[in-house]
Amino acid sequence: MKTLETRAVTKIFKSGSTEVRALTDISLSFEAGELTVVMGPSGSGKTTLLSILGCVLSPTSGDITILGQKVNGLSEKERRRLRLGKIGFIFQDFNLLDALTVRENVAMANQLRGDSRAAGLKNSEKLLTDVGLCHRLDFLPKDLSQGEKQRVAIARAFMNDPNIIIADEPTANLDSRTGQDIIAKIGELGENKTTIIATHDERITQLADRVVRIEDGRAVEMS
């Protein structure tokens, strides 16, 4: 089942009279239960592509369809709602909220959706147990290792049971063993979801169903 589709997506960044073409004519489709790895050198446009797929950024031209819904015409409010309910994000530098504990960070995803704090905290415990952090529930992010922080970010991404998981360089700040554990965990939790991971790490491709390489803003399907 197709969950995400891009058709002739182009993104041009403008700064004064200067134009930078980040993506050119990208047409891709993603299936449920499929783990796609997006590879490419720095500045190739991986993050821009993931931002467009995650409804964070709008393309200059082209169409995006998520779960059968065209995203192009949606208002910012509708795009935020779509992100909150259907898409889970995992960032390179974790992006946890420093003032909140591990469980509060994860519960926040629920609370943003309108659930009560109590319900959010209860739901977060199961996911944190799944990622092996049941002993760190009341820790602050500053007291966690890099790998543990990324596990919290993973739990948060899965909190609202999204259809799509978008992870931008999730292993960049981790050692290779921890990185592989993290990717395995994302794959395990996202078994029935559409998972798109941008990375430099060639080893991750072994876990992927398909690999898309971005070169000079164009997508090349590798496998």
């Binding site: 709602r81 909150l84 992006n95």
Partner: peptide, 12 residues
Amino acid sequence: KEYGILLALGAS
């Protein structure tokens, strides 16, 4: 930055 994170996650 943290507010940006919330907005990126989909906070209204």
